[in-house]
Amino acid sequence: MFKSASNGNHRRIPFSKLWLGTFAGFLLAFSAWAMNALASAQAPKKDAIPELASSRFAWLAAGADWLDPPAGLRGPIKNDSDHPFHGNLDGPGQVTLRIGNYKDPVLKPWAAAQMRVSNEEVLSGKRGLPFSAQSRCYPGGVPGQLLFPAEPFYFIQTPKQVWMIWQRDHMVRRVYLTNKHSDKVTPSWFGESIGHYENGDTLVIDTIGLSTKNSYIDNYRTPHTEKLHVVERLKLSADGKMLEAMVTVDDPDTFNEPLHMVQRWRKADNPLLETVCAEDNFDYFHQNLFPLPEAKKPDF
């Protein structure tokens, strides 16, 4: 057809007809574009990604303890029934401290023993408050960091990476959107996280390489080894206002079977502010608090 247009016979195309053709072409192109837009709006949800990141909103945790998983799954470590936990938000009554159930049969003996020592330290009054990563400016680790309440956390999403940034002491976790862990991972507070999206509403994060010093999977000071493998499935609710994490913790040297734990957040209209944990963070009530991270010698 293009060839025939160049034939001498057909060279003189009436101007009005060219415009008609152009207009028809516009219509054609526009409708194609509109159809395309419509199609992408109705595209299978699995190709979409959940909108977790914004400069205007963040995610505020439901609380500082793991919630139970669906029935039939092994849940989180709870408090020692001899020392019931009564938190600040649990209504009238004497507030108590978190004393973990070291008698839980899922714990390997070394983990139970370590938790018992930690409990004794608190029960004996030697330490007025048990170690809590977030109040003493330590990273919460994975999955412990998900339990930070009171201040929200934020996402940044790019095609290759996701950042999770907690307002509290600006703790940063990075999730690389790839399907393979590095060959060699040096253990660190937040380990190495890789991830992918599923079903248009879920971010699945797989983490290994978690260091163990002062690192706990919950606020009961449940320890772990460097074999810890954590899978977090963060699912955005249909209305986009709630985020729920189903967390599976597998560490055969600490637990006799994997633990399944749930955390929830609600969307909060907060931009990211600056909260500096170590600012004026003193032991005002002489509780022999766990010391803050401190560099006895400057780093450089």
Partner: peptide
Amino acid sequence: MKHLRVCGCAGSVLATLLVVL
């Protein structure tokens, strides 16, 4: 008719390019 088809086609291409642009 052939005229129209030819110029319509050329126009379409032109317009599509414009829209894309």
